[in-house]
């Protein structure tokens, strides 16, 4: 039998012995490849030129941070789910419902901390339902969370009775309206939440398993990772974090309407997508999400400051998101 034995064993492939150099290269590649970061810098430069005193002031920097704080929290929730390769369309309505529930509990006379915890549990509960539908009943995440989006949105109308809830105890407004060392409290909360999510995703076994599941669920399962459990808890945590965003929003606005945080879903998805262009693997990651949030925040604030009509703002926001993603894909294709 003629076999390939006759060839002398070729030497082992000596590829890239220098691991450190390899890492550096991928880091610089990351910066270079990121059309998203270029877009963010570009936007800051453009708005800075158009309105140097208004846009580039320290006050406005704080202002932008305050404006993106809640989006950061909700986009963080979306990031968790998208790391596992799924999607959560219900983060916006979940935030609304949590905020409205917490407000309703406060108005019914419960102590503020208890009401906040109950509100968070509402978010956690919605997340667990999502996780159960997706992980254990194998319903596609889009369908499952579209359904919860609708149901939870309806519950928010019921909780608020269709009106706007207001008159919560003053102490509750500390969450959304106080300042620590000049920084608005929502910013502080957003930073803490982002930091925690970043640590969980990057430095915990749970977070790493989420990445494994998102990268290839079959391989993860065949390697002994409990895919279902991990997906379930990712959705659950996302629900909890969304709820937190909703409660901060309600405190910030001193009022809870039946739809107050719903629009955050689209922006959160956009932010995570923008952020995905920043990672080598193309997966959701918190650092990238923050850049995405930054783009959206700078864009909205800058366009307002320059005085662009809101309808045009909508159109431009979409175009700039596509442009940023395109820019990174061109870069990475050439690399």
């Amino acid at each position: 039998m003629a076999t390939t034995e006759t060839v002398s064993a070729a030497p082992l492939p000596q590829d890239r012995p220098d691991e450190a150099r390899d890492e550096r290269k991928s880091l610089s590649q990351m910066v270079l490849q990121s059309g998203t970061i270029i877009a963010l810098v570009g936007l800051i430069v453009i708005f800075g030129i158009m309105s140097p005193s208004g846009f580039l002031s320290l006050g406005n920097l704080t202002n932008i941070l305050a404006q993106v704080a809640i989006l950061t929290i909700i986009a963080g929730a979306q990031t968790i789910v998208m790391v596992t390769g799924h999607f959560d369309l219900s983060v916006g309505t979940t935030a609304t419902l949590s905020g409205a529930s917490a407000s309703a509990f406060m108005l019914s006379g419960l102590p503020v901390p208890v009401a906040i915890i109950l509100g968070l549990l509402v978010g956690l509960g919605v997340g667990m339902i999502n996780g159960f539908l997706v992980a254990f009943l194998n319903i596609s995440a889009i369908v499952a969370t579209l359904a919860t989006l609708t149901t939870v949105g309806g519950l928010a109308f019921i909780v608020t009775d269709g009106t706007t809830l207001y008159g919560m105890p003053e102490v509750f407004y500390w969450v959304g309206q106080s300042r620590i060392a000049g920084l608005p409290m929502p910013v502080v909360i957003a930073v803490v939440v982002a930091l925690v999510i970043w640590i969980v995703l990057k430095y915990t076994t749970v977070g790493r398993r989420w990445y494994a599941v998102g990268g290839n669920a079959d391989v993860a399962r065949l390697s002994g990772v409990s895919v279902r459990g991990n997906v379930f808890w990712a959705f659950a945590l996302a629900g909890l974090v969304s709820g937190m965003g909703g409660i901060v929003l309600v405190s910030r606005l001193s009022s809870a309407s039946a739809t107050s945080a719903n629009d955050y879903m689209m922006l959160a998805v956009a932010a995570v997508f923008l952020g995905m262009t920043l990672s080598n693997s193309g997966q959701a990651n918190l650092g990238g999400t923050l850049v995405g949030v930054g783009i959206i925040g700078v864009l909205q604030n800058g366009l307002n400051i320059v005085g662009v009509n809101t309808y045009v703002q909508q159109v431009l926001t979409g175009i700039i998101i596509v442009a940023a993603v395109l820019l990174s894909s061109f870069k990475s294709r050439r690399a």
């Binding site: 076994t205 790493r208 990445y211 494994a212 998102g214 990268g215 290839n216 079959d218 391989v219 993860a220 065949l222 390697s223 002994g224 990772v225 693997s281 193309g282 997966q283």
Partner: peptide, 18 residues
């Protein structure tokens, strides 16, 4: 066709599964 998770590091692939 299911040997590795492409989007995570080599080390993580090796230590995958608790």
């Amino acid at each position: 066709e299911l040997s590795i998770v492409p989007t995570i590091s080599v080390a993580e692939n090796i230590l995958l599964g608790e």
